[in-house]
Design a protein around this nucleic acid. Structure first.
Lengths: 192, 192
DNA sequence: GCTTTTGCCTAATGGTGTTAGGCTGATCGG
DNA sequence: CCGATCAGCCTAACACCATTAGGCAAAAGC
């Protein structure tokens, strides 16, 4: 038979496209094989199965997001960096909903540390160097920003902001203002 | 045959338990039927299918979470209310991971407005009455809190905070402090 | 008591995930 | 250049899940 020249990477990329089109949770080995013009079992030479396929898509998405964030952050600091990092997540989620969902897939620790995940944490930490936070407050802030960026993209993607004014973009700008303000006036141990 | 006396509600409850045990995305009509001691097609008298089953579980979870939040909020305001509301999400996610995941299921607009979803938004808005926010800042703050609570629970559930100090509970307290501080000093239009 | 409804059943179909094993085009040592 | 090995693809086969159609008998209403 005609060899199509598949590889794990190519399969993951096709899977990512499929995820964006039909939703990550509807990605199916059969459907993917169909799109690649190949019989279903043929994919098993490249991915270990359905679970592995999803993981591969997730790893791809994490890489892409990290690259995108790094580019957005270049040369910026303070509020600009905050807007850039958050915006890169928002944009990625909007443009690639399936991949974005994939990036949230829980994976085992070994895979997670070898993924682009740590790069994301590192970038958030780097961003915080523009503010005056000592440990452990910096860690708290990393977690706060991570949660907020993820939660926001997730809710916006689900259409949670669609049916009330003001629009999501306007709110987003003001939220970035609020975060910038918060990081510059981070409260100490005693209630201020 | 012995009638088991199923109803849509009971099926949803059993589905919720199953979700907590095996994960929401692994809930299957067959498995649920097996647990209920009934043939698979029998469930189709009570739920319209796999998708509907998931929606029913989601609706149940949203109700439970709203009830829990309402109870936690009773008689509290300010930082206490903030900790109570966020804590109720955190606690629910920890105790009922499958149900929590279900609650994030996207649903069509009609179903969403008839769900307990609006109650959640109303409670967050009520909480903000303890702070001095005018529209549209109150809406921005509702969205910020919603995103943060959801994002935090989601990341904590996925184990995102497990492999670094300090522990999640400590960070959480400080994040509540930060949010309380932010809401009390919410920045105006001009950069402060 | 008889009818109607309804809760459950079995049978059957089609789709998905996965394993086993075979064929053939590509690749590489001589 | 040629044979051996390997890799990429295939078909066959099985188990499991979702869903529809149609039947039977317990429960509920007149």
């Amino acid at each position: 038979m005609e060899r199509v020249g598949l590889t794990t990477r190519r399969v993951a990329e096709a899977g990512a496209e499929l995820a964006d089109e039909v939703g990550f949770d509807r990605v199916t080995v059969s459907d993917l094989a169909r799109r690649l013009g190949v019989a279903t079992p043929s994919l098993y030479s490249h991915v270990a199965g359905s679970a592995d396929l999803r993981t591969q898509i997730a790893l791809l998405a994490l890489e892409e997001m990290a690259d995108r964030s790094a580019e957005a952050l270049a040369g910026r600091s303070g509020r600009e960096a905050l807007a850039a990092l958050g915006g890169s997540y928002r944009g990625y989620a909007r443009e690639h909903p399936g991949r974005y969902a994939a990036a949230r897939l829980p994976m085992d620790t070994a895979t997670a540390v070898a993924s682009a995940g740590p790069r994301h944490a590192a970038m958030t930490r780097a961003l915080l160097r523009g503010y005056d936070l000592k440990e452990p407050d910096a860690t708290h802030a990393v977690r706060l920003l991570g949660s907020l960026f993820h939660g926001w993209s997730s809710l916006e993607l689900a259409g949670g902001f669609d049916h009330s004014a003001p629009d999501a973009a306007t709110s987003w700008e003001r939220v970035v203002d609020a975060l910038d303000h918060l990081l510059r006036t981070w409260p100490g141990e005693g209630r201020s």
